[in-house]
Design a protein around this nucleic acid. Sequence first.
DNA 1: ATGAAAACAGACTATTTGGTCTGCATTGAG
DNA 2: CTCAATGCAGACCAAATAGTCTGTTTTCAT
Lengths: 210, 210
Amino acid sequence: MSRKGAQSREHILGTSRELVMEKGFAGTSIDDILRKAGVSKGAFFHHFGSKAELARELVRWHAGQDIEMFRTLAARAEATHDDPYDQLMMFLQGFETYISNPEQPSRGCMYAVYTYENAQFDEQVRGIVSEVLREWTAIYIRKFQEVLDVHPPRMEVSARQLAEMIVSIIEGALVLQRAYGKTDMTARQSRHFRDYLALLFDKPAQAAAA
Amino acid sequence: MSRKGAQSREHILGTSRELVMEKGFAGTSIDDILRKAGVSKGAFFHHFGSKAELARELVRWHAGQDIEMFRTLAARAEATHDDPYDQLMMFLQGFETYISNPEQPSRGCMYAVYTYENAQFDEQVRGIVSEVLREWTAIYIRKFQEVLDVHPPRMEVSARQLAEMIVSIIEGALVLQRAYGKTDMTARQSRHFRDYLALLFDKPAQAAAA
DNA sequence: ATGAAAACAGACTATTTGGTCTGCATTGAG
DNA sequence: CTCAATGCAGACCAAATAGTCTGTTTTCAT
């Protein structure tokens, strides 16, 4: 693939991303994409064999992005703190900063879009989506287990419960954020969850982060 | 409207409900509805002037259902207990029973579908959706305020924070429930939230409900 | 019973949709 | 520079889509 070819492909992919997040997958026609991206039908079908392939590439792109974000935040947290509780807290704070980026306020979660439109997609795409969500949960489970191994909680609770709760909260907050245009909903919910953790593990509330 | 007319209208509305929840609004064609409902195009457009009107009627139907559910559960809880904390707990338990109905496991929240597809809808429909979500939150805020007025929490927390948290959790859990086919995700998350409340308000954990 | 209004059936239409195909332009390795 | 591979433009197509219209059947108050 030539330099310009790759560039053009990225451009189409980026435009599609925005449109799909804005109008949903079924609600976004290929002509919509062509219009907004300013490219021809020939260009589109040169880079993507079909709309289904676009769906696959889109979800792969997001999966890649998110894994990278997770890894970066996790690495930073683990480099800064030894205690898994502190690591987790710092990780969540990092997420809050990331999701609150005022440059491009998040309009929702692409996996939620794909989940509610899953009838549109083939088994492969559905697999990637649930795989990513499972992976997120799994990462949290491991980390919470580390925390539980060191800090006795004030009530009986499993690592899985806590992991599924934070993932649910984030997903739900993104729905509400979009539903009534409150761009800080997700970060606020994450912060509240951290307060819950502080209470659960009997830690003093930390100074409020940025 | 004749008896059979109303009946037929309900039938179309019910079928549309299922299809939209299954495939999204943009992903559901009128022909899909006609096929599944076994009615003719003439019948459909006799009852609904357009697809947009169907969208309006659908969201109105859901709003009506949910308000009724909320009122019923709230009334029962308030009739059983005097303490707002106990009322809230019973309300949430009632919700868990409702959402866990094994007859028709919930495939998600229609408002989330509408939220992520909001570009498809007119201002009126978008208004109803955010109105319902706001109303839910408002009801919870009032109830949490009552609780906070009586029971001192173990950490500083506002009624709004708690209200938005439970709504987020439910919305998010419904996404996860659908994403990986775990039909009990929502009820479990609600239960975990109740445990959090028990910890927050320093109440003994109640015997696990059904 | 009857007649007008409501309920429906389904052919038809204009537009949009995802996708193909042919031919021209650009790129970059040799 | 050359030329084959890549990148791209846009006319074209068949199917699907939302919606219309005309005519027939059903309903129900009188």
